[in-house]
Design a protein around this nucleic acid. Structure first.
Lengths: 224, 224
DNA sequence: ACCGGTGCTGAGACCCCGCTGAGCCGCTGA
DNA sequence: TCAGCGGCTCAGCGGGGTCTCAGCACCGGT
């Protein structure tokens, strides 16, 4: 865990460095806003402790600049005054948390821990098979760079196949999982939709990733 | 944006509910810890405002229980005393932020907004998608340089969509998060409001950023 | 080669989904 | 009190999606 402390008061900065290092963190110091901004850009920190009152460039500016550059390192702001709107402004410029001076060391630690705990958000898994990509979240399918437009039923069918790559899936399996359970319809329905799929993801690209296994079902080929 | 307020003091709870609803949030109230825990488990909230002093089960316990069950809804704790260790304990049991009573409504709002911003995975204060800008703080929306006038409901809808860009959001999702709890209304309502939105942010500018994904929901296109 | 079985495809009907305009209700401010 | 606005419901319409059906192609076994 690497932490950047941007603080111009020597005494406070030193105390923070020693304290945090005692907790096992690796700490970098920056004496002013410009240096802090530079370090935050160059290095990858797990969190930044950022004072507002700084020579040269104040904390708000540093924070806003970083966010504008799409750098999302968690930022803990140290507000000198405890005016309400100061705090609100800190959060609105993109800080993740703030502390009003004077603060106790225990509280700072707790805030930092909370900040570090909030890790990166998990992204829904995109399923890939060779150059075929399916994103369940955005319901988007791509063959290479070309987008493929699928209807709801076609998408459901392809998703099920892609979740069982390389294995033979029977038509009754598909009817049960892609269509409603206990669907007593004609297996021909599956054949029809397999046809639709092929005409959208295989034939235009001259592939044949959907194999038919006579008497058994279908198999989607390719490797993740 | 759906928010759960766990607070036993009737007056405060009511005031919060009314205030937040005026801002366009959908608000649920829970009068004690047990009820709050139950609701937080059952429903999907975008944030929880959690008092510590509660009958039956206190806020620490509720918070710790939720985290133990891997429910990561952002939690804003209301600490009655302003002892340092209270605050530290709040953060250490898994709360994301805290406020010491008494607090002002402005500050609460700022904290909540910051929390909601993080919940979606660390976004800047102003949400941008291509030339569409939405500022939660000032409740202003712009397409390019042109201001767009939205009603509260339209704004809530657009904000939720912009916090989930590129992903398909179902109508029931929207009903649950943009409208009130347990809203068992007609999904047509969503369609109507999508229509309103399109007539304000898309059609006049000859775009179509709100795509309908037949059988699944809607997707807001564009890149930050 | 013949023939039954299995899978593929084009055409078409039906129906549900989503969009829209009209209108009602409640609130608010003039 | 009334006009205006926002929120919501309702009914109708249009079109795209789902499904059925029949005919044809292909494959395997005798």
């Amino acid at each position: 865990m690497r932490i950047l402390v941007v603080e111009d008061e020597r005494l406070l900065a030193g105390a923070l460095k020693r304290g945090l290092e005692a907790e096992g963190y690796a700490v970098d110091l920056a004496p002013d806003g410009r240096d802090g901004l530079w370090r935050a850009r160059e290095q990858s920190y797990d969190a930044i402790v950022l004072d507002i009152m700084l020579p040269g460039m104040n904390g708000f500016q540093v924070c806003a600049t970083l966010r504008r550059e799409a750098i999302w390192t968690p930022i803990l702001m140290l507000t000198a005054k405890d005016g309400e709107y100061d705090e609100a402004e800190a959060l609105d410029t993109g800080a993740d948390d703030y502390l009003s001076k004077p603060f106790s060391y225990v509280v700072l630690l707790a805030h930092l821990r909370a900040l570090l705990r909030r890790g990166a958000g998990q992204r829904p898994a995109v399923i890939e098979l060779d150059d075929l990509r399916l994103d369940p979240a955005s319901r988007a399918v791509h063959r290479g760079d070309d987008p493929v437009n699928l209807t709801a039923r076609e998408f459901g069918l392809l998703e099920y196949l892609m979740r069982h790559p390389g294995t033979v899936v029977s038509k009754t399996d598909l009817l049960e999982h892609v269509w409603d359970v206990g669907f007593d319809g004609d297996p021909n329905l599956v054949e029809v939709y397999i046809g639709y799929l092929r005409r959208k993801i295989d034939i235009p690209f001259d592939r044949h990733s959907i194999e038919t296994v006579r008497g058994a079902g279908y198999r989607l080929t390719g490797s993740a």
